[in-house]
Simulated scan of single mutants.
Amino acid sequence: MSSAYSIWPVILVPYNMPPWSGMKQSSFILSMIIPGEKSPANDIDIYLKPLIHELQYLCQGVQCYDAVSGENFMMRAALLWTINDFPAYGMLSGWNTKGRFACSCCAHNTESLWLYKSKKFAYLGHRCWHSSSHLFRKPKQYFDNIYELRSVPSRISGSKICTEL
């Protein structure tokens, strides 16, 4: 936390190999390092643009040569998912991960509670994602002194997200 410099590595992991060899450090591909005094914040898309263009190009397919079989083949690549910390998640998704509506799953139905002494938000409404018979739904004394009676929030459709944007 006291460091005056920040480095954000972008690492690609191939998933067409067995886990015992694909998850070794020697298989990781360090595609870029984003340097700076602070996090890239909203400019992360500028840094990732060349990588995105290459992945789009590889998604269409590139003619490659297989030295073992001696034949050409069409190589394709796709981004399956990203693994990142919460601040990077906010930058990549465009969702504000601070404040009253920090949960991207609950969106505007986020149950948040302002803690006056610590001057922070607490998010206690995630018990609604458990089944109605789950043990965590009942004991109100361990949470915020309320029984969790809400049902699982419905997923937001793509058209609703576009409308909000």
Rank of each mutant, 00 (worst) to 15 (best):
Thr163Arg: 12
Phe101Pro: 05
Gly99Asn: 06
Thr82Lys: 01
Asp66Thr: 15
Trp129His: 14
Ser157Gly: 13
Gln25Phe: 04
Ala122Tyr: 09
Met23Ile: 03
Lys49Glu: 13
Asp66Gly: 13
Gly61Lys: 00
Ile146Gln: 08
Lys160Phe: 11
Ser21Tyr: 01
Lys120Gly: 05
Pro35Leu: 02
Asn145Tyr: 03
Lys24Gln: 15
Cys103Ile: 12
Met32Leu: 12
Tyr57Glu: 14
Lys120Gln: 08
Met75Gln: 13
Lys140Ile: 06
Arg100Lys: 15
Asn42Thr: 13
Pro40Lys: 02
Leu58Phe: 06
Lys160Asp: 13
Tyr123Met: 05
Cys59Ala: 14
Cys64Gly: 06
Leu30His: 12
Ser69Trp: 03
His130Lys: 02
Trp20Ala: 09
Ile146His: 07
Phe86Tyr: 09
His53Lys: 14
Asn72Ala: 03
Pro14Asn: 00
Val62Ile: 14
Ser31Pro: 01
Pro50Tyr: 09
Tyr47Pro: 01
Ile83Leu: 00
Ala41Thr: 04
Ser31Trp: 05
Ile46Pro: 00
Cys106Asn: 09
Ala77Leu: 07
Ile156Glu: 01
Ser3Tyr: 07
Met23Asn: 11
Val13Ala: 07
Ile146Glu: 01
Asn72Lys: 10
Arg155Met: 01
Phe28Gly: 05
Pro18Arg: 05
Ala107Phe: 09
Ser2Asp: 15
Asn96Asp: 15
Glu164Thr: 10
Lys138Gly: 02
Trp114Gln: 13
Asp45Ser: 14
Cys106Pro: 00
Lys24Asn: 13
Tyr116Cys: 11
Ser151Ala: 15
Gly125Lys: 04
Gly99Asp: 02
Met17Phe: 11
Ile83Val: 14
Trp20Glu: 15
Asp66Asn: 15
Met23Tyr: 08
Met23Pro: 06
Leu115Arg: 07
Tyr15Cys: 02
Lys117Leu: 02
Trp8Ser: 08
Val68His: 01
Ser93Ala: 10
Ser21His: 02
Leu12Ser: 00
Lys120Pro: 03
Gly36Pro: 01
Ala88Gly: 01
Leu79Cys: 09
His53Val: 01
Thr163Cys: 07
Phe143Met: 11
Leu79Tyr: 03
Leu80Ser: 14
Gln56Tyr: 11
Ile44Ser: 01
Arg155Phe: 02
Trp20Pro: 11
Gly94Met: 06
Tyr89Thr: 03
Asn16Met: 00
Asn145Met: 08
Cys64Leu: 10
Pro9Asn: 10
Lys98Pro: 01
Pro35Lys: 05
Pro50Val: 05
Lys98His: 08
Gln25Tyr: 05
Ser159Ile: 12
His134Asn: 10
Asn42Cys: 14
Leu80Gln: 13
Pro87Trp: 03
Ser157Arg: 06
Ala67Gly: 00
Ala88Phe: 04
Cys162Pro: 04
Ser154Gln: 07
Met17His: 11
Gln56Gly: 12
Arg100Ile: 07
Trp95Arg: 07
Gly99Tyr: 06
Asp66Tyr: 13
Lys140Ala: 00
Pro50Ala: 08
Met74Trp: 07
Ser26His: 06
Ile46Tyr: 10
Tyr5Glu: 08
Glu148Gln: 12
Thr163Ser: 06
Gly94Tyr: 07
Glu37Pro: 04
Ala122Gly: 04
Glu71Arg: 03
Phe28Tyr: 14
Gly94Phe: 00
Phe101Ser: 05
Gly70Ser: 12
Lys140Pro: 02
Asp43Pro: 12
Ser93Asn: 13
Ser93Pro: 12
Val62Asp: 05
Trp95Lys: 03
Ala4Arg: 15
Gly36Asp: 10
Cys59Thr: 14
Ile156Cys: 00
Met75Lys: 08
Gln56Asp: 12
Ser132Trp: 12
